[in-house]
Write a protein that binds this DNA or RNA. Structure first.
Lengths: 179, 179
DNA sequence: TCTCTCATGTAAGATGTTACATGATTGA
DNA sequence: TCAATCATGTAACATCTTACATGAGAGA
C-alpha cells in the first residue's frame, strides 16, 4: 500500500496539486522508485479523499481538482515513515532466465547478457542526463533526489559488471567443456 | 506471466515433479528470482495442464500429482527464452522513503540507512552460506546458480556501500546546515 | 475552427497475498 | 496413537495493467 504514501508524501512536500500534476511526477522522478499509472493515481486520490487523508482544496478549469493533505494524512505519512520499510519480494525476469541457462545454447546465453549490457548502458546514460539536469539548474540539489539517483547509478554499474563477469564465466566454462 | 515459465523451466530441467516439490524450489533457490506462494503454484499448474503445456504423468499417495512438460510446453519455454526479457517496473519501499527524507528529522533518516545496512548485511550472510553450501557439496556447481547467486551478492554489496555513502551525505549536509 | 494538451474517470482482466480448509501417510 | 509432514485446493481481497471513454480550454 505504498502508492498512497507516495501521494501523501508529494502533497506534504509541496503545494496542493491536481492528479494530473502528481501523475507527471510519477512519470518522471518517482518512476524509478514507485511507478504508477494514470488509472491508479486517480483512483487512489479518490480513495484518500474518501478516507479524509486528503481534501479537495480548490477546483479549476476542466474539472481540475487540487488536493491538499489533511492532518490525518500527515499522521498517516509520518507513521509510515517511522515504520521499518517492508521488503516486498523482487521479481526479475532476467534473473529467472539465468536459472534456465542450461536449456539454451551457449551462444544464446552470451547474447542474453550482451543485450543486458546494452540495456543497462542506455539506462546509465539516461540517469547521467538526469544528474546533469538537476545539478545544472542552479537549484540547491535536493539531497533526497541525489541519494535516490545515486542508487540507480550504482545499481546500473553493478549490473553491467555482473553481466560482463557472467559472459567471462560462460567463456571459461565453454573452454572446460571443449576438453 | 513469468510464473508459468518458471514452472515450465523447472519441469524441463529435471524429472517430473509434484506441485509440492516445485513449491520447495520456489521457497529456496527461486525465491530470489521469482518468489511464488503455494496458492499461486497450484493454480498455475492446473492452468498449464488445462492448456496442455504440462500433463499429469503419475499419481502418488495423498492425491499427489506428478507433472511432466509436454512438447507444447517445451516450445512455449523456448519461445520465452528466445524473447528479450521484459523489465517490469521495480517498486522499492526503501527508495520511495528516500524521496521523502526531508519530511523527517535527520536522525531518523540516519537510522533508516543504518537499519538498511543491518538488513543487507544479514542478507549477505545468508547468500554466503548458500554459496558455501553449493560449492561444498561436491556437485559440479551449476553455472546458472553461480551466476544468479553472484548477482545477489553484488547487489547486496552495492546496497551496503550506497547506504553508508548516504549516511556520509547526510552528515555532510548537516554540517553545512549548522553554519 | 481545429488540434493539442489538460483533466478525470471507469471497466475488465491479470497477478499476487493471506487465510482458510481438508485429508492422507509416515514414523516415533 | 499421535504429531509432523506431505499434498492439494478454494475464496476473498489487494494491487496493477491496459484499454476505453469523455469533455473542456488554449492557442494557432
Amino acid at each position: 500500500m505504498s502508492l498512497r504514501h507516495a501521494l501523501l508524501g508529494l502533497l506534504d512536500d509541496d503545494q496542493p496539486a491536481s492528479g494530473y500534476e502528481l501523475l507527471k511526477v510519477f512519470d518522471s522522478s518517482l518512476a524509478n522508485a514507485w511507478p504508477a499509472t494514470q488509472s491508479q493515481v486517480y483512483s487512489e486520490l479518490n480513495r484518500l479523499a474518501d478516507e479524509g487523508l486528503i481534501t479537495v482544496s480548490a477546483l479549476g478549469p476542466r474539472g481540475r481538482k487540487d488536493y491538499a493533505i489533511t492532518v490525518d494524512g500527515k499522521r498517516a505519512l509520518r507513521d509510515w515513515l517511522a515504520a521499518p520499510p517492508v521488503d516486498k519480494p523482487v521479481r526479475s525476469d532476467m534473473l529467472l532466465r539465468v536459472f534456465f541457462l542450461n536449456s539454451i545454447p551457449v551462444d544464446q546465453a552470451r547474447e542474453l547478457f550482451a543485450a543486458r549490457c546494452e540495456r543497462v548502458r542506455a539506462e546509465q546514460e539516461r540517469l547521467r542526463e538526469i544528474a546533469v539536469a538537476i545539478s545544472g539548474n542552479g537549484d540547491p540539489i535536493s539531497i533526497d533526489g541525489r541519494i535516490a539517483l545515486e542508487f540507480g547509478l550504482r545499481k546500473a554499474q553493478m549490473e553491467l559488471e555482473w553481466a560482463e563477469w557472467a559472459i567471462d564465466q560462460l567463456n571459461a566454462s565453454a573452454v572446460v567443456w571443449r576438453r
